[in-house]
């Protein structure tokens, strides 16, 4: 056939077919997305520290393991309160003359998704310790350690940010671990990763493939609530307070035998969970985990009951109604402020 025996015609045809399809499925949709999507009204240009932190995130190839996309499927609900939208990425443009745009959506989730990590894990102390060596706070972690973002100083200055690293992880170096500016940039970037809230009149898009709620066939309601509490603890509290409830000396306080956990001051207890705590010098500040994660009274109850009955703790269980009352009181206090 003429077409097949003439190299010009053959290769031109193949090229045109390929370029045409490329235009159809790649370039034209890309251009349309770029033109039609605008950032959400609540979105703000990132600050200088955050930009530097993002550059470090890119340079160290963190995207190899961490995605930044909440898919519109129920299983991704743990990573954000709503699915990511095109508008979430619309504000990201070319990094510089040498480097391309970095939406950092990622294709592997060897580590957790980071879309909303600024809400989920905002603690400065935790993040710095975790960057120095993740296995200090999460024993099973396979994340690389980033000690080159820190220096060791014999006598740190007052303005230095000292990181409380247990001796076992210091590999016999003497002195205090001090965060370099790079570590603080990276921290600023991680803390800045929060889902932008949608405009008030906009409906939040739903998640597909909802999980079927399990029937109570497998166990009594009380047992289920406890199991739920363990899962919630593992997902939200364990990173700092550890699975054995003993915390990390000098960084995160123990919950095992804690007077707050075992005591009767439910208002203080719920207040700490919902709104954070920074009353004790020797420990890092606790972020408002409950508010960030939008805990319901049932979830708070499950966590409290898990903490009160685990390890060697043996305090009485609380009911969701009690907690609801306490939460309402707290909410009123905040509102009156």
């Amino acid at each position: 056939m003429e077409l097949f025996d003439n190299h010009k015609k053959l290769f031109t045809t193949a090229t045109l077919l390929f370029v045409g399809l490329t235009w159809l499925v790649a370039i034209s949709p890309a251009i349309r997305n770029q033109q039609n999507n605008k950032p959400l009204p609540a979105w703000k240009e990132p600050e200088q520290d955050v930009v530097k932190g993002k550059a470090l995130f890119i340079a160290n190839g963190c995207v190899a393991c961490h995605t930044q996309q909440v898919r519109n499927v129920e299983m991704d609900k743990v990573w954000g309160s709503r699915p990511s939208l095109a508008a979430d990425y619309a504000g990201i443009s070319r990094t510089d003359f040498w480097r391309n745009t970095a939406t950092l959506m990622g294709t592997e989730r060897t580590g957790p998704d980071l879309t909303d990590v600024g809400n989920r894990q905002p603690s400065k102390d935790w993040n710095l310790v975790h960057l120095y060596n993740p296995r200090i706070v999460v024993k099973e972690s396979v994340m690389p350690a980033y000690p080159w973002l820190f220096t060791i100083k014999k006598e740190p200055l007052e303005k230095d940010v000292v990181v409380n690293v247990p001796e076992a992880f210091l590999s016999k170096k003497e002195g205090k671990v001090v965060a370099k500016p790079e570590a603080l940039y990276l921290l600023a970037y991680l803390q800045s990763l929060k889902q932008t809230s949608l405009p008030e009149n906009k409906a939040v898009p739903g998640f597909l493939y909802p999980q079927q709620k399990k029937n109570a066939a497998g166990g009594s309601p009380a047992e289920e609530a406890l199991a739920d509490g363990q899962t919630l603890y593992a997902a939200n509290c364990q990173a700092c307070h550890q699975a054995n409830g003993e915390g990390l000396p000098g960084a995160f306080p123990p919950l095992k035998g804690s007077p707050v956990v075992e005591g009767d001051n439910l208002e203080l207890y719920v207040d700490i969970i919902m709104n954070g705590y920074d009353a004790r010098q020797e420990y890092g500040a606790m972020p408002p985990v409950g508010t960030n994660m939008q805990f319901t009274e049932k979830e708070v109850t499950a966590i409290i009951n898990y903490e009160r009955s685990s390890w060697s703790n043996g305090a009485k269980n609380v009911t969701a109604e009690d907690i609801k009352k306490v939460m309402d009181v707290l909410q009123q206090k905040i509102n009156t402020k």
Binding site: N33, Q34, N37, Y89, A90, I92, S93, T101, M105
Partner: peptide
């Protein structure tokens, strides 16, 4: 670079 901003980058990727 003309079609790489925002989600354009992801589609091209």
């Amino acid at each position: 670079p003309y079609w790489q901003n925002g989600l354009g980058e992801t589609i091209i990727q």
